[in-house]
């Protein structure tokens, strides 16, 4: 497996194949704007409760403040993360992870791979865990975290989370210095496309939008709406009056939490949030994440059983 991949997409495909072979459900990206793969409900919500889980997926992620009009060699406002979440964390998770590096062409006999302390914390999700940044030859290529708490709930059992920053990892494996020069499909394909052919223009458009054009008043209104909607959804009784079934709407509520989080990121990029307000906004999103986590553990996927509830 030490043969080198030739393109960005080949690296993604190899990761998909590898984790599929290791038994993960290969999911598709979540269909909403998120700041990181962790926000996908397949991670945030599924790390709660006692049900076993194993999922891997690519998640397009957006960090409006990181926009550089496509000029910076490795900063983007839209990028991809590869995310793996396994619950309970298997005892050989480190070895599984190292196997995935080999799968994408990193020869562990030639490179220096290190696990360097990094305590992960997401103030917006009310989540934290312990683990490492994984370094390959001095470069951070992944985050490796054992979740301890999410949405204010203790994780029992503990999930192991792996997050790969795909562009940076791929640039390293492919030996490319500027992200826009990276081959997206095979360089010998009849129509060979580079990362820049696909994303340079959108980086420009979104950079302008995020920094200067986004309507801050509307964004703020939408933030308030999403916040209210999240709470309103969860205020509904657990039992659906129409079907007579118990249906706790944790996921629809969590969509609103995701929305609020992204709107906050946009407001932040527009520079309209002061240092003191910043904490307050983060606290508001965290409050939503907690409500959603509380709701999720009241669902079947979150470990709820009618017997236990009695």
């Amino acid at each position: 497996m030490a043969d080198k991949p030739r393109s960005f997409q080949e690296i993604i495909l190899r990761l998909q194949t590898y984790w599929a072979e290791k038994g993960c459900a290969v999911l598709q990206p979540y269909d909403m704007e998120v700041g990181a793969g962790t926000f996908h409900p397949a991670t945030t919500l599924r790390s709660l409760g006692d049900r076993a889980w194993a999922a891997a997926y690519v998640q397009p992620s957006r960090r409006p403040t990181d926009g550089r009009y496509g000029e910076n060699p490795n900063r983007l406002q839209h990028y991809y993360q590869y995310q793996v979440l396994i619950k309970p964390s298997p005892p050989d998770l480190q070895d599984l992870y190292l196997g995935s590096l080999q799968a994408i062409g990193i020869d562990l006999g030639l490179h220096d791979v290190r696990f360097v302390e990094d305590d992960w914390e997401s103030p917006t999700l009310g989540a934290w865990g312990l683990g490492w940044e994984v370094w390959c030859d001095g470069m951070e290529v992944s985050q490796f975290t054992y979740f301890q708490q999410v949405g204010g709930h203790d994780c029992k059992p503990v999930s192991g989370e792996l997050t790969y920053g795909l562009e940076r990892l791929a640039m390293y494996v492919l030996g490319v210095d500027h992200v826009m020069d990276m081959p997206f499909n095979d360089p010998d394909a009849p129509i060979a496309l580079k990362y820049g052919d696909i994303f340079r223009q959108t980086e420009e458009e979104y950079s302008r939008h995020n920094f200067d054009a986004a309507d801050t008043e509307k964004l703020l209104r939408h933030f308030i709406d999403a916040e209210a909607e999240c709470q309103r959804i969860l205020d509904n009784p657990a039992v659906d009056p129409k079907t007579g079934k118990r249906i706790v709407m944790a996921h629809p509520a969590y969509d609103q939490c995701i929305k609020a989080s992204h709107l906050f990121n946009l407001l932040d990029a527009r520079g309209v949030i002061s240092v003191t307000e910043r904490q307050a906004y983060i606290g508001r999103v965290r409050a939503l994440a907690k409500l959603c986590a509380d709701a999720f553990v009241q669902t079947e996927a979150g470990g709820y059983t009618a017997e236990a509830a009695e």
């Binding site: 060699p73 006999g109 030639l110 220096d112 290190r114 030859d137 390293y172």
Partner: peptide, 28 residues
């Protein structure tokens, strides 16, 4: 000076090249 955790067949050439590349980006 960087300290690696492994002896390699290429006497650390790959590791050094990688580290140098990361440093280049940082110092840029």
């Amino acid at each position: 000076i960087t300290v690696a955790n492994i002896e390699t067949a290429d006497q650390g050439a790959t590791i050094l090249k990688g580290n140098q590349k990361v440093l280049f980006a940082r110092l840029s």
